[in-house]
Computed example of a mutant assay.
Amino acid sequence: MRGIARLLTLAAVLILVVGLGMVLSTTQENPAGPAVSASPTAGGTSAIGTGSASPGSAKTATVPAVPEVANTSGLEAVAASSLPPEARETLALIARGGPYPYSRDGAVFSNFERLLPRKPGGYYKEFTVRTPGESDRGARRIVAGETGEKYYTPDHYESFLFIVESK
């Protein structure tokens, strides 16, 4: 009987270790993993803010301005003009480099869900899309990559659409 109890305890510990390993592998970016980078394109640069709620105090990161970004994500594409008006307002704020109404706008998006293409840490920034009637930030966001690609999530990172911006 003691042998069976030991075997069951060992099996339970093994299941816990494997389960913990699976959870950790899906919630952490792998710094040793392959870094995929987009080809550089012609154009100037634009700024993406990194989290300021007041005008004139926005910290900015230089991001290449890409007139037309190819959808290499495999995600469904949506025209920017088809997005809700609040999302189009957020796109305009990103293009201007702020100021942003929420302190978390411009914060690093870590892509823990791994629904966007894998990139090095700090590659993506997130921006709030105001939701009428919500007292907090709501669930809608735009995530912008360093090379200019942008994604819209209406459901707090459960799904994404690649945004096609017109020239």
Rank of each mutant, 00 (worst) to 15 (best):
S57T: 15
V69S: 04
L116C: 03
T60V: 13
T50M: 14
A87S: 06
I48Q: 02
A58R: 11
S46C: 15
F127G: 01
A77D: 06
G74E: 06
S135L: 11
E68P: 00
V69G: 02
R130E: 13
F112L: 10
T128Y: 03
E113K: 06
R141F: 00
A70Q: 08
Y123T: 11
S57E: 14
V108D: 02
A53S: 14
L91T: 00
S103Y: 05
K125A: 04
K59H: 08
L75C: 01
V78P: 00
L115D: 03
P64E: 09
S110L: 08
E86N: 08
T45F: 13
G121T: 15
G145Q: 05
A58V: 13
L75W: 00
L75R: 03
A77W: 10
T131W: 04
R104W: 07
V143W: 01
G122I: 05
P55L: 11
E113L: 04
K119W: 06
V108Q: 02
I142H: 01
R130I: 11
A65G: 08
L91R: 03
S54A: 15
L115I: 09
A139C: 08
T45Y: 13
T90R: 05
V66W: 02
G51F: 01
G133C: 15
G56H: 11
R130T: 10
S135W: 07
D105T: 05
D136E: 12
Y100N: 07
A139H: 05
L75V: 04
G122Q: 10
L83M: 14
N71Y: 00
R137T: 04
V143C: 02
R88P: 02
G98V: 03
P120A: 10
P117W: 06
L91F: 01
I94H: 03
A95N: 12
P84S: 10
L116Q: 01
V129E: 01
A61S: 11
A139V: 08
K125E: 03
V108G: 02
T60W: 07
Y123I: 13
E126D: 08
A77E: 14
T90Y: 01
L93Q: 05
R130W: 06
A92K: 12
T50D: 07
T50K: 12
S46I: 13
T50A: 12
P99T: 10
L93W: 00
T90P: 00
R141T: 02
S103C: 10
S110I: 00
L93D: 04
S52G: 09
V78I: 13
P84A: 12
A53R: 15
T50E: 09
R96T: 07
T72I: 09
G56W: 12
N71H: 07
P67V: 07
A79G: 12
E68D: 13
R141W: 02
E146M: 10
R104Q: 12
G74R: 09
S103H: 11
N71P: 03
P64A: 11
Y123S: 09
E126Q: 09
S110H: 07
P67A: 13
A58H: 08
S52T: 09
R140P: 01
P84I: 12
R118F: 05
P117T: 09
Y124R: 07
P67F: 03
V108T: 01
S57W: 12
L93M: 12
L83T: 08
A144V: 03
T72F: 00
V108K: 00
S103K: 14
A77H: 10
Y100W: 07
Y124V: 01
R114M: 06
P55S: 11
T131V: 15
G56D: 11
R104F: 09
A70N: 06
E76L: 14
R104C: 10
G56S: 10
L116T: 01
